[in-house]
């Protein structure tokens, strides 16, 4: 059974929120505060939504956004207060149990993936991401890493792009020309 013993703080914590409901985990208060701040920003943004029905218009484009962000703000504030009242779990640390370096690295890798996906394109960005991910996690030789990452990327590309015609950012790769080149190789493909 995959049971996480909360007493064994050896980096095997699953970081599931509420792992120990009667204690505050490291970073939990800061996260709750961040959520409350983000909710306040969203409430402010909702207040700025244009209301074509006048200030007293009951039904307007900002009614639902104001209501939902208001609920977010109130519930986030209550969560923050409840979290602050809990005693801190001193057996856990943020770096070891909640946000270990590997998680941080992958979070940054995902953010980087999102940033460079459009300029570089799906194929090069995904190839770089998969190679880096496999090298960091599996720590095996380059041949194995390249074979698995590029092989799986080609399989995914074939399924999404060729079979299901899902358009993905092409970026630097002349994808359309490549596909047409292969079509030209088949009889009747150029038509």
């Amino acid at each position: 059974m995959d049971y996480i013993d909360p007493e064994h703080h050896d980096g095997t914590s699953d970081a599931t929120p509420g792992g120990e409901p009667d204690k505050r985990r490291p970073g939990e208060a800061a996260f709750a505060a961040a959520l409350a701040c983000a909710s306040a920003v969203l409430v402010w943004s909702a207040l700025g939504i244009e209301n074509p029905f006048g200030p007293n218009g009951l039904s307007s484009p900002r009614s639902i956004p104001l209501a939902t962000t208001g609920v977010m703000l109130v519930s986030a504030a209550l969560i923050l207060v409840k979290t602050l009242r809990l005693p801190l779990d001193r057996a856990e640390t943020l770096v070891r149990d909640i946000l270990p370096p590997v998680v941080l690295v992958f979070a940054l890798l995902l953010v980087g993936y999102g940033i460079v996906l459009r300029p570089l394109g799906f194929l090069p960005t995904s190839a770089l991401f998969l190679i880096a991910a496999l090298k960091i996690l599996a720590r095996r030789n380059w041949g194995w890493t390249l074979a698995i990452s590029l092989g799986s990327l080609v399989a995914i590309w074939l399924i999404f792009r060729i079979v299901f015609s899902v358009l993905m950012p092409t970026g630097l790769v002349p994808e359309a020309e490549l596909i047409q080149f292969f079509r030209n190789l088949t009889p009747g493909g150029a038509s």
């Binding site: 929120p17 509420g18 409901p21 959520l35 939902t68 962000t69 609920v71 977010m72 519930s75 986030a76 209550l78 969560i79 409840k82």
Partner: peptide, 11 residues
């Protein structure tokens, strides 16, 4: 576990 967190995520 927590109804408040459920309400927050629903909103």
């Amino acid at each position: 576990g927590s109804l408040l967190k459920g309400i927050f995520t629903g909103a």
